[in-house]
Amino acid sequence: MTDANPSPRPGQLGSIDPLPIGTVAELTDEITDNVTRVIVGHDEAVEHVVTTILARGHVLLDDVPGVGKTMLARSIARSIDCSFRRVQFTPDLLPSDITGVNVFNQKTREFEFQAGPIFANIVLGDEINRAPPKTQSALLEAMEERQVTVDGDTRPLPDPFVVIATQNAVEPNRTYELPFAEIDRFMKKLTLGYPTPEEESEMLGRTVGHHPIESLEAVTDLESIVRARETVANVAVEPPIRQYASELANYTRDHAIIGASPRGTIALLRAAQARAVLDGREYVIPDDVQYEATQVLGHRIKVGTDTAADDGTTVAQDALERVRIP
C-alpha cells in the first residue's frame, strides 16, 4: 500500500471496459470470503459495504464500540490492493489535518502541497462524530465533490474514492452528531450488532493468538474495482423500477417529518444495481430495491415524536409493505 495516489486517473467516461457480470459476482464473493476470515458473523454487513463500493457510495457504520466496525473497514481495504488511510477523528482535529496543507520548502523556495490522509482510495473516518462540524464538513464535502480545495487550488481525489466512516452510538453528549444534511451523503448506514455466542467464541479462537488481519492478502486490484463499478453502472433500471423507487420515497415523505431525499432515491437505485450484479442479473428487480431500501433510506428519514413509527427504518419498512410493486 502506498500513501500517495498510485492509481492512474481513469480515462474519459465510458472508455472503461466493464467486467462481465459473472466475474463481478465472483469478485465480490472473493472479497467477502476474504473479509470473513477476519470478521465473524457479519456477512450481510460485509456484503453491504462491498456493494456500496461497487455502487460508488460511502458507508457509515454506527454501533457501540468494540463490535468490529474499524476491523471491518480495514479488512475490506486490505482485500483490495489500493491506497488506504485512516483518520481518527478527535475534538481537536482541524480540516487541514484531513485535506493537507501547503508547506514552504526551504530548498526550492516554493510552497509544496503536503497531501492529507484524504488522498487515498479508501478512507476510514473513525469515530467521525467526535470531531467538530467544521472538520466533519471537510470530509463530507470531499465525499460529495470528490475533490478538495486548499489555498485556492482544487485537487481531484483518487478514483475510486470511498469513505467508510464509523460513529459510536454511546456517549452522545460528548460528540457532535452529524447534521441531517451531511448524513444524507452516506449511501448506507449499517449497524453490526453483537455477535451470537457461537460467533463470538469462533472469533475469539481466531484472534487471541495472532490477529488474522495481519496476514490478510489483497484478492483484487484497483483496476478490477473500477471496471466492476462500470459493470454496475450499466445495469438496466427499467421504468417500473424507477417508479417503484420514487413511490417508496414519496411514501416516506408523506409519513415522516423529513422523508428520503432525491439523492436517497438515486442511491437506492445504485445500490439496487450492485445488488442485481451480485445476483448475476443485468437488470434490477423489485427484490433488489427492497433488499437495499432499509439501509439506504432509513437514515435519511426523520420521524417526529408523535408519529407512529419509531425511527426512519420503521418508516422505510412500512413503505416496503404498503407501496404497490409496479
Binding site: 428487480i285 427484490d287 427492497q290 409493505e321 404498503r322 407501496v323 410493486i325
Partner: peptide, 9 residues
C-alpha cells in the same frame, strides 16, 4: 399477492 410483495417473495 400482497401489495408490497415482489413476485419472488
Amino acid at each position: 399477492r400482497r401489495r408490497g410483495e415482489s413476485p419472488r417473495q
